[in-house]
C-alpha cells in the first residue's frame, strides 16, 4: 500500500513517551507535537536526553511506552515499505555530520537520491552540487572525502545530505555548533528561506541562543523528563521554572536577546 501523505495533518506527534535505560528513566509521559511550517527549537540541559529524544522520534530507538505519529500514521504500525516511503519525508543532520567516510561529499549527497529516485546520474550530480553550494561549501568540496574536511564543513556537508530529498520534516541536532558566526547566520537564513518556500517543519536541537532568537518560531523546553512548555520565546522566558530562568536569564542569553532586537 502506498503511503498517502496528507500534509494538513500534524507532521509529527508524540504522546506519552517513556524511554529508559535499565532502571534509569530518561523521559516519562512526554508529549510533543510539531505544527506544519514551524521551526521549533528544543533546549534542555546537558544529559537531559535531547539526542535520545531525537533518536526515539526517528525510530532508531524504540520507546518503552507511548505512540509516535507522522502525518497521522503510527510509525510502529507501518509496513517496512511504508516506513521507507515515510523516511523520504524526513531529513536528519546528526551531531558529527555522520557522513559516509568512504564516499566523497558529492557521492554522500547522492546516496539518498540514488536510493529514492530514478533521475539520470548527471542530473543527480548537478543537484548534489547545488546542495553543496546551498549550504555554503566551496565547489571544490564536492570531490573531497569527509576526512579532508574541517568540523564545520562536515556539518554543512551533512546538512546538504539531509536536504537531498527536500524532506517535509527536518531534524537538526546542534546544527550551528562548530560553525563560525557568519556561517551560523547564513545557515539560519537558509533554514528560514527553505521553510518559507517549502513549508518545512524543523525540529532544531540547539544551544545556540542566537539561532533560538532569530530562527525559531517556538521553543520547547525538555526539563524534568518531559517537555514542560512549547511556546513562543517571550512566553518561554516568562515560564516559571528555575532551570528555564537560569538558562534564559544568563548573560549570554541577554546579549543574544539584545542583539536580536536591534
Amino acid at each position: 500500500m502506498v503511503l498517502k501523505i496528507d500534509k494538513t495533518d500534524a507532521p509529527m506527534e508524540a504522546r506519552g513517551i517513556l524511554t529508559q535505560f535499565g532502571s534509569n528513566i530518561i523521559h516519562e509521559d512526554l508529549n510533543f507535537r510539531l505544527t506544519r511550517g514551524e521551526i521549533v527549537g528544543l533546549v534542555g540541559g546537558s544529559g537531559t536526553g535531547k539526542s535520545v529524544l531525537m533518536n526515539t522520534l526517528l525510530g532508531l530507538k524504540e520507546p518503552e511506552g507511548g505512540v509516535i505519529r507522522y502525518f497521522g500514521y503510527n510509525r510502529h504500525e507501518l509496513t517496512s515499505e511504508q516506513r521507507f516511503e515515510l523516511n523520504t519525508q524526513i531529513g536528519v543532520l546528526f551531531q558529527g555530520g555522520a557522513l559516509f567516510s568512504s564516499l566523497t561529499v558529492r557521492e554522500n549527497i547522492m546516496v539518498p537520491l540514488r536510493e529514492h529516485t530514478d533521475l539520470p546520474v548527471k542530473l543527480m550530480r548537478e543537484l548534489a552540487d547545488m546542495k553543496i553550494h546551498m549550504v555554503g561549501l566551496p565547489p571544490q568540496a564536492a570531490t573531497l572525502y569527509p576526512s579532508d574536511l574541517s568540523g564545520g564543513m562536515k556539518k554543512r556537508a551533512g546538512l546538504a545530505r539531509s536536504l537531498a530529498l527536500d524532506p517535509e520534516i527536518l531534524f537538526l541536532d546542534e546544527p550551528t555548533a562548530g560553525l563560525d558566526p557568519v556561517g551560523a547566520n547564513a545557515f539560519d537564513e537558509l533554514i528560514l528561506g527553505l521553510r518559507e518556500a517549502m513549508d518545512l517543519t524543523v525540529l532544531l536541537i540547539t544551544h545556540d541562543l542566537d539561532t533560538l532568537y532569530t530562527t525559531c518560531d517556538k521553543v520547547a523546553v525538555l526539563v524534568d523528563k518531559h517537555i514542560a512548555i512549547v511556546d513562543t520565546l517571550p512566553k518561554v522566558i516568562a515560564y516559571d521554572h528555575p532551570w528555564v530562568q537560569e538558562y534564559f536569564g544568563g548573560p549570554r542569553s541577554r546579549a543574544a536577546l539584545s542583539a536580536g532586537k536591534t
Binding site: 553550494h133 546551498m134 537558509l190 527553505l194 518559507e196
Partner: peptide, 14 residues
C-alpha cells in the same frame, strides 16, 4: 528565494 538560491549555486559549479 528558492530560485535565487538555486541560481547562485549554478554560478559556482566545480
Amino acid at each position: 528565494t528558492l530560485v535565487q538560491a538555486a541560481a547562485d549555486a549554478v554560478m559556482g559549479r566545480p
